[in-house]
């Protein structure tokens, strides 16, 4: 059910952009909605990050998978259990660029004879790496449509992506990897009954949305093309606050653009915000200095204590009366 709701929502949104622009609402789908979307994206992201930034971080969480810094003859695991800022940067970089936590993903299986087996499971990691990295490359090579003149680095990137030199316009490797990786991530959810049971609309919806963006982009580049110079006129117009909607752009482009706008607006308020959240992983971003430095709880209030001396002062006479020995006469 969750799957069909999500799929129907994405199809509906795509058709809304396609038919809406076809019916003459170019200015709405080409100018108004993109600006609202970018405003929601940035505003929402700032809002979410500022909430997280205000969360107190008094102690270091030593959840690690390596030897902490100890005696000089015990080898420290500097990336898994860092004690310096540099080590933390290394651990975070590996987490963000290589998804190390996901690499450690294991699968638990109950065999027929009743014994439980654990094994490493790399497919999720591989699918995620393929999806995220191709998405980054796709985002970066779209910059050519946003700025003028195009810097050499962006040209280099999309030439590298199109190094197979198939067809015209040149086929990008990422246009293939991106949807395939997403379809794997979708069928992974659908194929495993346990995973399907815990999957919600907000798991399926972003997947379908990204697949929709990928397929409509693919379609627009390789199958039913539109005038790319007019598209650039629109995007550059948006970026320099002189928006225009050239007539030569096909409705399919607006379908693609509207899905992207929905993605942007939805981003900060969904699980996709892990893009910012990953930087706030407390088990990854804190150096383990629990033993070498004293971490005082900053909101500890002074505890009222009643020492034995004060106690004796208070009850000395009564203690003497019943024959309890006292330290001070």
């Amino acid at each position: 059910m969750n799957v069909f709701i999500s799929l129907a929502a994405v199809v509906f949104l795509f058709l809304a952009g396609l038919l809406g622009a076809g019916a003459g609402l170019d200015a709405l789908f080409g100018i108004v909605i993109p600006y609202i979307a970018i405003f929601l994206f940035l505003g929402g992201l700032i809002y979410r990050v500022m909430i997280w930034a205000n969360v107190p971080v008094p102690f270091r969480i030593p959840t690690t998978s390596g030897q902490e810094k100890s005696l000089p003859w015990i080898k420290q695991s500097k990336l898994d259990n860092p004690s310096s800022t540099l080590g933390v940067i290394g651990r975070m970089a590996l987490e963000i660029l290589c998804f190390r936590s996901l690499l450690k993903n294991t699968k638990t299986e109950l065999h027929e004879d009743g014994h439980v087996a654990y094994g490493s499971s790399l497919w999720l990691w591989l699918g995620s790496m393929a999806f995220h990295w191709s998405m980054l490359i796709i985002l970066l090579r779209h910059i050519r449509l946003f700025i003028e003149p195009v810097p050499g680095a962006i040209t280099f990137l999309h030439k590298l992506d199109g190094f197979l030199q198939i067809g015209a316009p040149v086929f990008y490797v990422t246009s293939f990897i991106f949807p395939i990786a997403l379809l794997y991530l979708l069928f992974r959810r659908l194929g495993d009954p346990k995973l399907r049971y815990i999957s919600l609309v907000n798991d399926y919806f972003p997947l379908f949305l990204l697949i929709g963006v990928g397929i409509s982009g693919f379609w627009l580049r390789y199958i039913s093309k539109t005038d790319i110079a007019s598209v650039k006129e629109l995007t550059v117009g948006l970026m320099s606050f002189r928006p225009v909607t050239p007539a030569a752009i096909s409705p399919l482009f607006y379908g693609h653009l509207f899905l992207v706008c929905v993605l942007l607006g939805y981003f900060p308020f969904s699980k996709l915000v892990h893009m910012a959240g990953v930087f706030f992983s407390p088990t990854r971003n804190l150096a383990n200095t629990n033993r070498e430095a004293h971490h005082a709880n900053p909101w500890d209030y002074p505890v009222k204590v009643h020492t034995y001396e004060e106690y004796e002062d208070e009850f000395r006479e009564k203690m003497k009366a019943v024959g309890i020995p006292v330290e001070k006469e």
Binding site: L45, N54, V57, I143, I147
Partner: peptide
């Protein structure tokens, strides 16, 4: 006590990256 200053630095870097096309187009006149 919290990592607010670091978070804000990160946020500013991210915002600069997102609005890079606007800044770039502005910078090239």
């Amino acid at each position: 006590m919290n990592d607010k200053s670091k978070s804000i630095v990160g946020l500013v870097i991210f915002l600069a990256l997102v609005i890079f096309p606007v800044l770039y187009n502005f910078a090239v006149g």
